[in-house]
Design a protein around this nucleic acid. Structure first.
Length: 273
DNA sequence: TATCAGGGCCTAG
DNA sequence: CTAGGCCCTGAT
């Protein structure tokens, strides 16, 4: 099937954006995304069209929200003040990135893993967890594994996580599983909370600090006002904004601006180092 | 082969 | 509030 996407949309930038850790590309330009038990193959076609492997119904129900297609990024970018030259440059470079709306459980777990790890290292842990504890699905001639649910991780022990290279984060993962299964943390229910309370609730999990909590709020709950500050963003604040955090000024779109910064830093590593 | 930092967080002082 | 420590990987 084919879909038309009029807004800024760039598969490579999305896959490399560091929000999701399971997206892969093929030599022919096809990208594969996985969320929940859904798998999507998507390839660019002329005139803002894309060939997708799913039905219209699944596209509308699953992937449109996943790619945040209801939001107009062209408008948001155009609204960046001329004065903020660095952000304009970053937004230009990152044009086509979307804030993905991912599954809260998967996002929570993957960002607990992410701390003090490089993106390739995160990918390999996430992939190993999926292979061992997720559900096998057969699509398009390949066997994939969904990301394991909390229930599927019920009996996984610290040693098992360590075997998956989670390192010192192993007890954090056990705590996350325990809290979700016991209902002490209800990932569905907290979606109704305002940003600050949502973040506070997430911080109740061991190994979840302000940075990881903000990532989950932004990349799973669509809280675009939340802007996670990591080492890269910190560098930018130091070098480009004289140590003054600019995100307060960006208001409801702060998280999107953060993504532009992050992408810019990632793709200009040599210069910013 | 050795070294270093990587999308931080916890604990102690 | 600030400093170490942490478990392991990928990059040089």
């Amino acid at each position: 099937m084919e879909v038309h996407i009029p807004d800024l949309f760039d598969l490579k930038k999305i896959a490399d954006s560091g929000q999701c850790f399971r997206a892969v590309s093929r030599p022919d330009g096809t990208y594969r995304f996985i969320t929940g038990d859904q798998v999507l193959y998507i390839q660019k076609a002329p005139d803002g069209c894309y060939r997708v492997s799913c039905s219209q119904e699944v596209w509308d129900r699953v992937w449109r929200p996943y790619f945040d297609l209801e939001r107009n990024y062209r408008e948001i970018s155009a609204a960046i003040p001329e004065k903020d030259a660095f952000l304009r440059r970053a937004a230009q470079a990152g044009a086509g990135i979307r804030i993905l709306r991912q599954d809260p459980w998967e996002t929570l777990v993957t960002f607990i893993i992410s701390q003090r790890k490089s993106i390739p290292a995160i990918r390999s842990v996430v992939e190993m967890l999926s292979e061992r504890y997720g559900t096998a699905v057969h699509v398009s001639g390949e066997t994939l594994h969904t990301f394991p649910t909390a229930a599927q991780m019920r009996d996984v022990g610290e040693e098992d996580y360590i075997a998956c290279k989670a390192g010192y984060r192993a007890p954090y993962l056990c705590d996350a599983v325990e809290q979700v299964l016991s209902g002490r943390l209800d990932l569905e229910k907290i979606s109704a909370l305002p940003d600050d309370q949502l973040i506070a609730a997430l911080e109740g999990v061991r190994g979840v600090g302000v940075k990881v909590a903000n990532c989950v709020a932004l990349f799973a709950y669509g809280r675009a006002a939340c802007a996670p500050v990591d080492t890269w963003i910190r560098k930018i604040i130091q070098q480009e904004y004289r140590g003054r955090n600019p995100f307060d000024r960006y208001g409801a779109a702060a998280g999107i601006m953060q993504q532009y910064f992050f992408y810019y830093a990632q793709s200009h590593k040599a210069e910013t180092a």
